[in-house]
Amino acid sequence: MTTVPGMGLVHGMGLTLRRFFAPKATIMWPEQNADVAPRFRGRLQLLYDEYGTLKCETCFQCAQACPIECIDMGGVDTRGRFHVHWGPPETYGERREESAMRRAGRPVADAAFTRFDPMDVTPVTAIAEAHDFEPKDLLPMLEDIQAAYGYLPVAALKHLSRQTGAWYAFVYGAASSFKHLRFEPPTMPAAAPAGEGLRSAEAGYVSALGAALSGKAPA
C-alpha cells in the first residue's frame, strides 16, 4: 500500500501498459516449434535407431502395463510377422467391455481375429482344461501346444488367451520370450528380423567402432 491512495492502481496500470508493448511470450505453434530439450521423454512417438530400424521390440509390455488400455499396437512385428494385433483402434468401445470381461475371468470372443485361417483348436481347449484354465501355468500350456502342433500357431495363442482369460499380449509376450518356443512350423526357416536388408552400413560401423575401441582392425 502506498502513502498516496490510488497510486498502487496507477503503478499497476503503468506495468500493464509497459507489458502491452513488450515482446510476447507466445510460441506461434504450428508455425514455430517449442525448444524441446534433448532429454525430454514426453514425446509420443516410437524411436528409430541409427539404421532406421524401429527400436520397439513389440514386447507388448507397455500395452500390458497401461491401466486404461489406451495403448494400441498393430501391424507387422519386428520379425516380419503379421499377427501382433492387440486390437484395432476402432474397437475401443468393444475392447473396454472385453477387457472388463477378461479381468472377470470370462472368455471373450475376439472379433478382430476371426479372419485368420480356421484351424482345429480342440487340442488347445483340452490342454487348457488339463491345466484348469489357469493363466499362471502359461508356460507348460504353451509347451504342450507346441508339442501338439509342432509350433505355436497364432490362432492357438488367441484361443488360449480366450480360454484362460489372459490377455493376448500376455500370452504372446510369454511365448516370444522363450527361445525354445517358435511361431513358425519347424520346416519353415525362421523369419528374418525386419530391416534386415537395410543394415548395409552396420558392418562398416561395427568394424569402425571395434577398431576404435580395441585400437586395431577387427579380424
Binding site: 500493464t16 501498459l17 507489458r19 502491452f20 513488450a22 511470450a25
Partner: peptide, 13 residues
Amino acid sequence: KVIAYMNLRVGPN
C-alpha cells in the same frame, strides 16, 4: 487483443 497483449500473449490471430 489488448488484454492478450498486456498478458504477454498474442491473442486471436
